[in-house]
Amino acid sequence: MDSSQLLKGVLDLAVLAVLAERDGYGYDVVRRLREAGLEDIGDASVYGTLRRLFKAGALTSYVVASDEGPHRKYYGLNDVGRARLASSASTWTSFAATMNDLLKDAAP
């Protein structure tokens, strides 16, 4: 099964979870998601998701000037983002539990 298909449905949740840990800029979020094991994640997908969540009012953003490289736009969760994370997380948890139940006997 192509995990990138699965990822599409939970990309928002993954990005919100990473940002709940601490604020991050675009490439930083990509790197942290890959380090967490989502190696197939596309850079553009993460960037587009960040912009969409920001537009939806779930994220704050601020620019940090950097000495050696370009300016970095950091994103963090606000109350809306935290609420969305909480509700998405509970949806995911129950969904995952259902799937685990289903696969309990099927999995080797």
């Binding site: 596309g42 850079d43 553009a44 997908s45 993460v46 960037y47 587009g48 998701t49 912009r51 969409r52």
Partner: peptide, 11 residues
């Protein structure tokens, strides 16, 4: 890259 962006941004 643009297509992926579009998909992620607009769903």
């Amino acid at each position: 890259y643009a297509a992926e962006l579009r998909a992620a941004y607009g769903g």
